[in-house]
């Protein structure tokens, strides 16, 4: 479970990240770093230190990959948590505007439901 009290929070999809490191350089709070791990494409994906994000969104607009970066503003005000079967743990959740009844996991951005539809 993410326990950070930071104002913002950033989730990086390691498989979509191409390791260009532009976000690492652009982050004004310097809370992003280039991971030592490889993803399946052989890139070192960017990673979040886990504390200190302000939710400014600069990394989101710097990143050229449409789905690699997700930024939560007002992270500290998001209090609802739930068990995500996909991520295997308890994470903060939110309701989308389009379907208010659906709970979405902040870690994988997928709806939390009993039957998980695998990604093709």
């Amino acid at each position: 479970m993410v326990t950070s009290k930071s104002r913002g929070h950033v989730v990086i999809d390691t498989e979509e990240c191409k390791g260009c490191e532009l976000c690492v350089e652009a982050c004004p709070s310097s809370v992003l770093y280039s991971s030592d791990e490889f993803n399946t494409h052989g890139y070192h994906p960017a990673a979040y230190k886990g504390e200190g994000c302000t939710g400014c969104g600069i990394c989101f607009y710097t990143c050229p990959e449409p789905g690699a970066m997700t930024v939560y503003k007002r992270w500290d005000l998001m209090t609802d948590t739930a068990e995500c079967p996909r991520c295997g743990g308890e994470y903060k959740v939110f309701h989308t505007d389009e379907k208010p009844e659906v709970l979405v996991c902040t870690n994988c951005l997928k709806p939390i439901q009993e039957k998980v539809i695998p990604i093709r």
Binding site: E15, E16, K18, G19, L22, H41, Y43, P64, E65, A68
Partner: peptide, 11 residues
């Protein structure tokens, strides 16, 4: 790979 774009890193 159907998740990433065809663009180079930093494009």
């Amino acid at each position: 790979d159907k998740l990433t774009t065809t663009y180079c890193p930093g494009c």
